[in-house]
Design a protein around this nucleic acid. Structure first.
Lengths: 223, 223
DNA sequence: AATCTATTCAATAATTATATTGAATAGTTG
DNA sequence: CAACTATTCAATATAATTATTGAATAGATT
């Protein structure tokens, strides 16, 4: 095969894969599936899209082999085909967060209103976990927590936070995390906690980022 | 700002960036600019595109802040705005190379014909460089070599290989590298060397990958 | 200032991507 | 097997992407 033909094919194959990611909805789906498998309906619900549109975007991801399905009764569960796919997304996400001014401003404005601007990096949390009496809060839905969570974290889904406050002593330091930098459960939790007089910050990254760093993870069986 | 609005904006900003990469020609340009800055004409020449089309694609990359320009007389030099951009490309490239069957087959077929299938990884080259009498050949054009190369490598641009053979002893082991996995200078060099009875393999990765690993690099001034 | 040169722009045509709607399908449940 | 449910498909309209052509521009050279 000739040189130029080879290159054209190589870059085309890769561009096809990149194109499959090059859409806001599909990036959000990839981000969401970093938590584990989800049904079409769940994905539609989380992303605010219609089911038909969600399905169509999932087909695009599936054609590019970025996601695969597992049938379970009437439901079809989608998941990422490889962990590396989340890694690539994470990489692109960091590129945007670090170098697109518009992106920085968007996150800053959003977090300022929720007192969650002063966020911790994973490395900073690790230091705190060793030396301080810090409580790590997982603000994701219960099923995602059961699927895997930071070892030592306690699960308080955002809707339960208000009623759980009475069990949280005020003399501790709180770090809230959820799915990733664009997951706002943690921001909402920090807003509530700070308002009630707690010392709370959010973790910049989310659970999948913790996993990719090879840090300790625990699971809990559904009851 | 409302939750959904925030997410829509965040994923849209990132999708705009990813879209800027989601094209075979633009991926090739990003790959090429990993070697350092190039003029529009040079990029057009290397990629086999018309100058007008190249310019148009460069505008797309520039709008996304992936590349920036430096004027020099009549010429405009394009370069990547950040090293992380190459890193993201590298990441996507590896994803494709490892998980797209079509991609694996393409590379395998191409290299089999050139006896360059048995390629070394950077880590393997490092081991060899310590213990063996290996000669590292940089097959890129002279200007790219001068801009930075693997410390200890000698530069033999592909057109000069035939005439330089007389200076290469046959009792050594040769490892040829160029720009990256899709750069075929190294494959061509390996094909020539093996045909002439040398023991030669190509390096899987290219010079930018060596740099991103933080390995030793040398420069040479233009004469 | 006139000419030259590298690059960009504008207009076009062809192709591809997207969201919406409602119908079709495949598997489950009664 | 009929009814149901989750998902996919097909058709449509609108919008975005791409390569080509030739003209325009901005800076350098004479």
């Amino acid at each position: 095969m000739e040189k130029r033909v080879f290159k054209d094919k190589a870059y085309s194959i890769l561009a096809t894969m990149v194109k499959a990611m090059a859409n806001p909805h599909r990036l959000e789906i990839v981000d969401l599936l970093g938590q584990g498998e989800k049904t079409v309906e769940e994905i539609a619900g989380e992303t605010g899209m219609s089911v038909a549109n969600t399905s169509q975007h999932l087909q695009v991801l599936k054609s590019a082999n970025l996601v695969e399905i597992r049938r379970e009764g009437n439901f079809i569960n989608y998941k990422l085909t490889h962990e590396e796919i989340y890694k690539s997304w994470q990489n692109l996400r960091e590129l945007g967060l670090n170098h697109i001014a518009e992106m920085e401003k968007l996150v800053k404005d959003f977090r300022e209103k929720r007192n969650s601007l002063e966020a911790l990096k994973i490395d900073e949390l690790l230091t705190k976990m060793k030396s301080k009496n810090v409580v790590v809060l997982d603000i994701r839905p219960e099923t995602e927590f059961q699927n895997g969570h930071i070892t030592g974290a306690i699960n308080i889904p955002i809707e339960e936070l208000a009623t759980q406050l009475k069990n949280l002593p005020k003399n501790k330091e709180y770090v809230a995390y959820c799915r990733g930098p664009f997951c706002v459960f943690a921001d909402e939790a920090v807003a509530v906690l700070n308002k009630k007089g707690y010392s709370a910050k959010r973790l910049n990254e989310g659970f999948p980022d913790w996993v990719l760093k090879g840090l300790p993870v625990s699971y809990s069986k559904a009851s």
